[in-house]
Design a protein around this nucleic acid. Structure first.
Lengths: 160, 160
DNA sequence: CTCGCTGTTGCAAGAAGTTGCAACAAGAAT
DNA sequence: ATTCTTGTTGCAACTTCTTGCAACAGCGAG
């Protein structure tokens, strides 16, 4: 899967400002490591990065930060809802800016293929969960695991 | 959350036999470490165990196995669909026997509370994904993250 | 029952992720 | 602009997870 976000590979100042504002609003201090992490995430506002990848990019383009700081900071940002962790299959989780995206992901466990589905198609289920259980589904960007069409078909052949 | 499976804390021979059969059917060898792991999972056929917990239980009740073996074996068992990994929030994933359970999980990101929802309520969505995308949702036991009723309400108060 | 092929295991080394703590700096108060 | 408070950081030690590899043991063939 390749999910490319910002085609220019550059962060928009507006997005970064909005992020900084959220950090302050949550009562957190705006430090250098946090700026660096947010900058990387802002450039990839549609992407999914592992902690290692984030560390790598920060190292490439300036003053590296300590891994432990990255792990802790990412947890903190997740706690205030700015980002969240997505587990696409097993393998290390990937961080992602929390934005109300208009699509969800169907991830094939066999070939890894990712299919995008308009959130509208799933919204009814979210609404239902809210009505019946008072449950607010969050970061509507979660992965549904299963087998894609192609892999489902080859499976049937195998069983034949 | 406390999910207790087999009330006797004992594995049923039938379940273990069925598991062994699946392992053989997949072309994998039935070795001692694999038996041990399956035994632990079979006792907790409704439970969710981390790799560490599995290692711990095996160590308690007999010959311990090497951690690396456990990690690899669990991956292998997941590959053949016998078990799967569930990420309830962040924190290490938990392994779980793949059975067609009749419920799903709504996990609150704030208080950790888990609500069970009959699969029947979500089945329509799965059916729809299959019709439109040919996507077969697997191990119908996945976690939907969000905020539970109680936490949603306190959030509103905070904003007031 | 024994042999042989090859999937598995345990070990060891390394990478990734966590935790405690003293030094540091963001930002409010003055 | 300076000081003070306290949330954060970087370091170091540790735990957890991964990977390469030689020795081992399922299990099918003979």
């Amino acid at each position: 899967m390749t999910i490319v976000g910002n085609p220019m590979g550059q962060s928009t100042p507006e997005l970064e400002d909005a992020i900084h504002e959220k950090i302050r609003a949550a009562g957190l201090r705006l430090t250098m490591p946090r700026r660096a992490i947010c900058a990387v995430l802002a450039v990839n506002d549609e992407g999914f990065l592992t902690t290692q990848e984030i560390l790598g990019r920060i190292g490439e383009q300036g003053v590296p930060i300590d891994p432990s700081t990255a792990y802790r900071t990412l947890d903190d940002l997740a706690k205030i809802g700015l980002i969240h962790l997505v587990h696409l299959g097993s393998s290390p989780g990937r961080w992602h800016l929390t934005v109300e995206h208009d699509h969800q992901h169907l991830v094939c466990e066999i070939c890894g293929k990712t299919t995008l589905v308009p959130t509208a198609e799933i919204q009814p289920m979210f609404d239902q969960l809210r009505e019946r259980y008072g449950f607010q589904t969050r970061h509507h960007h979660f992965a549904i695991m299963g087998h894609c069409e192609t892999c489902s078909e080859s499976e049937e052949h195998d069983h034949a």
